[in-house]
Design a protein around this nucleic acid. Structure first.
Lengths: 237, 237
DNA sequence: CGGCAGTTTGATGTTACTCAATTTAAGTGG
DNA sequence: CCACTTAAATTGAGTAACATCAAACTGCCG
């Protein structure tokens, strides 16, 4: 892990909670930001957050993909969600210094660590930032609720379709999508750990999706061939 | 639904977010409270919150049991969590007027509706209330994360044990438990909808729990016979 | 007594898991 | 450029877990 200067490419300045925190569009001098946030680079596959530790910092992912997960006693793990550029690791971490989950880098990532006390003090005098945080909390809750419903009530095909649709929506807010091709740097094992299946079964179902002309995930790119069918499978309500 | 005067028995004055909001122990005159919160009675089984509607109110359950759920397109539904006395229906509802879930009464319940604007204004000048809300948000997130892990990675037995342990902990904070007997007014169908199984399968597994001398759920009471074995089954980490 | 909601039990079907082998793709060093 | 290595994806066969369907049983209440 190398310390780097604040990243010019960091999209977290533009939108969401992090954007609001940093002035939401108004140009914030990097030097000003540099005083209370630290950027670091982490290579693909490496752990970022270890569970059950107290951290004085809150984390935001700046570039690359990460994932948040719970490590279980039986050796298995459950991926709770994937982190995209601009994402707070967890909204509740703004107030809670004790993190109950783990985070790892899916690709090489750049993350920003900010002092919790500093963020909280900025929160105090700024209703817009509070609103952005509340919104983040709401979005997280809604996504968790839908994930619970997907895991509890949907078949393997439906769960994978649901995950794809969810990720497609999130990816589309951050980059222009052409030809219905979404960058999705997941291994089948990650999909399996996210939707509660084995990677073998995920492989079979991705094969079915290809055969039926619904979608094709290969080489880190999801090509959506028939979005209608995908939504028919993966939508909850 | 009948309007009633603020309930003297309402435990929501004592603890959690609602407690902090109402003055946390300091006696708040019921008359004062009466101006901006409304209590109502709802019989067992009736809906309380319909999804996708905007409400100017936030809800707190005062007495009885409720449950929050998502109704799916295929007719099935997923119970997201059970609501106990003192519970906010959802922490995010304090800021978000749009509710994406449903709530129904499990038993007859008494609920309190409070104006969101009023709650928000009380929030503004009171860091203790903000902290209580943040804590609620964190607890909700952690519970959701564990639920996702249970649904994704645990067997039927483990999931039911996990649900029991979770509910036992919550019930124990609100009432004294004697003889390891926990009031749990759930039908097997509710358990099924909460942990993603059929009620038939839940029945079989409760039978196994009885035969193995682990626990016995009958007539709305869960008797924990061997807590060690139950925790061995239901603990995640 | 009859009716109803909830639970239990049995028989059978389906989904997804496990284990193991094979194929593919992407390096890496000679 | 070609063996060699390694991680990931695919395929097949057998099995375990859970669903489905249907019937019987229980307790409760009018």
């Amino acid at each position: 892990m190398n310390y780097v200067s604040p990243c010019a490419a960091c999209p977290s300045k533009g939108e969401g909670f992090c954007g609001a925190l940093l002035g939401n569009g108004k140009s914030v001098s990097l030097d000003e930001a540099a005083g209370w946030q630290r950027h670091l680079l982490i290579p693909a596959g490496k752990p970022i957050v270890i569970p059950n530790q107290r951290s004085p910092d809150i984390y935001v992912l700046c570039t690359g993909w990460g994932f948040r997960f719970l490590q279980l006693a039986n050796g298995r793990r459950q991926i709770l969600n994937f982190l995209l550029p601009g994402d707070l690791f967890s909204a509740s971490s703004v107030f809670e210094e004790h993190l109950h989950f783990s985070v790892s880098a899916l690709t090489a990532v750049q993350i920003s660590r900010m002092r919790r006390t500093e963020v909280q003090s900025r929160l105090a005098g700024n209703p817009a930032v509070v609103a952005a945080l509340a919104k983040t909390c709401f979005v997280e809750t809604e996504a968790s609720d839908k994930m619970i419903a997907a895991l509890g009530q949907q078949s393997a095909e439906e769960r994978i379709a649901h995950l794809f649709l969810h990720l497609m929506k999130r990816v589309a807010t951050r980059s222009v999508i052409r030809d219905n091709r979404y960058p999705l740097p997941l291994r089948q094992q990650h999909i399996a750990e996210a939707v509660g299946l084995t990677s073998v079964h995920v492989s079979r179902i991705l094969g079915v999706f290809r055969d039926r002309g619904i979608a094709d995930l290969s080489n880190g790119v999801l090509e959506v061939i028939n979005q209608g069918d995908l939504e028919l499978l993966g939508s909850l309500a």
